[in-house]
């Protein structure tokens, strides 16, 4: 009897542990029709052939102001994390695959005309292996689904920028470079910010966030999506 009870409780414990852990990977582009979610699985292709880790090589020369000040923090946050990715700054002899730029004010105000109480902080544009820009579900669907590069555009004059906002924004956008989607959306398996913190979640940023470092959520998402 005891043996049976021990076995049952063991199985129950394992089941409880597995069902409480989040293993859901959020793709960057999806649509929902009824209760069905359709995703476009985009995948970053540059890899370090020696280590097998994903490789993001950044040209950051056009960063200015506080974006430049906090860039290194956001970069090392990913590079030093358990996510199987190396995020480095391209040297003069290396060809970058990612450009992080503080845009001109004219471009920003024309593309993202914000009212007094709102401000766009960052935008990530992905490029597929044909050089086509991906900024929506439709363009993702028409792409090769294989990513070769990305551009991160940053607000030249944010009003409400704190060190945390700069670090979080850049770290969050680097998550998009790896095709990670948002983890807070109510119709797409939202991550609980208390038990499953995620820098891809604005709920986490707004209500809980104290860290801009990739969390276990990001580690698991990348591993699930890329088969590490």
């Amino acid at each position: 009897m005891k043996k049976k009870l021990t076995f049952t409780l063991s199985m129950f414990s394992i089941f409880a542990f597995l069902t409480s852990a989040n293993s859901f990977a959020h793709e960057i582009y999806y649509v929902k029709s009824g209760s069905t979610i359709s995703t476009i699985p985009l995948r970053w292709t540059p890899k370090n052939t020696s280590t097998g880790r994903l490789k993001v090589m950044i040209n950051q020369q056009s960063l200015s102001g506080s974006w430049a000040t906090y860039y290194e923090d956001a970069r090392t946050a990913w590079h030093s994390s358990a996510v199987p990715v190396e995020v480095t700054t391209a040297s003069a002899s290396q060809v970058p695959n990612t450009y992080m730029v503080t845009t001109t004010q004219q471009y920003w105000d024309t593309m993202y005309p914000d009212g007094f109480f709102t401000e766009t902080l960052g935008v990530t544009e992905l490029y597929d292996t044909n050089g086509s820009s991906i900024t929506s579900y439709a363009t993702a669907n028409a792409s090769t689904k294989q990513l070769k590069g990305a551009n991160i555009y940053l607000n030249p004059s944010p009003n409400s920028g704190t060190a945390y906002t700069y670090r979080f924004t850049m770290s969050h956008e680097l998550g998009h470079v790896l095709a990670l989607g948002h983890s807070h959306l109510s119709d797409y398996s939202p991550a609980n910010p208390n038990t499953d913190p995620s820098i891809m979640s604005y709920t986490y940023f707004t209500n809980v966030g104290t860290s801009y470092l990739p969390q276990n959520h990001e580690v698991n998402d990348v591993k699930n999506m890329y088969g590490y």
């Binding site: 914000d114 709102t118 935008v123 900024t135 929506s136 944010p158 807070h184 604005y202 940023f205 707004t206």
Partner: peptide
């Protein structure tokens, strides 16, 4: 204030009056 994502993935900070 809150940070929200637009449908295209843009990160916006909204400060409430």
């Amino acid at each position: 204030s809150q940070i929200v994502e637009t449908a295209s993935g843009r990160l916006i900070q909204i400060r409430n009056p």
